[in-house]
């Protein structure tokens, strides 16, 4: 099991590295209450098969990474990722895939290091804004309301579909809520903006959303924050797209990525 101390936190990292030493690095960022496993068993192997140097890690407090008491805001997560890449000697540009919160972190990273990102794929995710933080508060409040009540959990969207998974998520949420400042940190609006200036994202961007997800109903507003990007809507799917429709996600991700695998060569052209 590989652990790396990044930004002062011990992070669990798995790297699927092809033989080619020049393979472009690609980082997978999972969602809240989740772990790198959500990629590991879905698209990670296929992405590595395209010739990417795939780096998967557990966010702080998640999976097998260390669980410090605090530091769960979007900038903390970005700092962790920066630290991780520094420790791995990855100077970029990197390709990023983020699911849900992981996508929000990826957006922030791309905003802070415009030269550091070669392409960005976000699944069921949006950039951090004041409005996003407000919705995150609602979501977490809803989750915390259900925390102690198994029947309530069963009634949620996820609980109805996969009770075991919903139970697990609520248990993790409870653990994190008790042991850390995650809820405060994520919903802290300091430093968040309402809108982004033109040209804030410069890399190619693919947005994947579930056709029945809440995010889909706000898709226009989200796309409005972004530069021109590719959007794939997976019909009939809810938020947990990666878990329930890995095939569809792979079908959207793989050809898009394959076309951008060598994007770096273009970037250096005089």
């Amino acid at each position: 099991m590989a652990h790396i101390i990044a930004n002062g936190v011990r992070l669990h990292v798995q790297r699927m590295r092809p033989a080619d030493p020049g393979a472009p690095p690609l980082v997978l960022i999972h969602g809240l209450l989740d772990t790198m496993a959500s990629y590991y068993f879905t698209i990670a192997a296929a992405v590595a098969g395209l010739g990417f140097d795939v780096i998967a890690y557990d966010l702080r407090g998640h999976g097998r990474s260390e669980r410090p008491r605090q530091g769960y805001g979007v900038d903390d997560a970005t700092d962790d990722l920066t630290g991780l890449l520094t420790e791995l000697g990855v100077a970029g540009p990197v390709h990023l895939i983020g699911f849900s919160w992981g996508g929000t972190v990826a957006f922030r990273f791309a905003h802070r290091f415009p030269d550091g990102v070669a392409s960005l794929i976000v699944i069921e995710s949006e950039p951090p804004t004041v409005a996003w933080a407000d919705r995150a508060i609602d979501g977490l409040r809803e989750l915390s309301a259900h925390l102690s009540d198994a029947e309530e959990v069963a009634r949620t969207e996820l609980g109805a579909l996969v009770p075991a998974m919903a139970r697990r998520l609520t248990r993790r949420a409870r653990e994190l809520a008790v042991a850390t400042t995650l809820v405060e940190d994520i919903t802290d609006r300091t430093g968040l903006v309402d809108v982004y200036p033109d040209g804030w994202l410069r890399c190619p961007l693919l947005l994947i959303v579930g056709g029945d997800s809440r995010l889909h109903s706000r898709l226009d507003a989200i796309v409005g924050l972004l530069p021109p990007c590719d959007v794939v809507v997976v019909p009939g799917q809810h938020h947990q797209l990666l878990a329930f429709a890995p095939g569809e996600v792979a079908a959207a991700v793989l050809p898009w990525l394959a076309a951008r695998r060598d994007a770096r060569a273009g970037a250096v052209a005089p």
Binding site: L85, T86, A91, R112, F113, D115, G116
Partner: peptide, 13 residues
């Protein structure tokens, strides 16, 4: 470097 938007690992090069 991070405040300048430069990836720290890119520094040596």
């Amino acid at each position: 470097p991070a405040a300048l938007g430069v990836m720290p690992a890119a520094l040596p090069l």
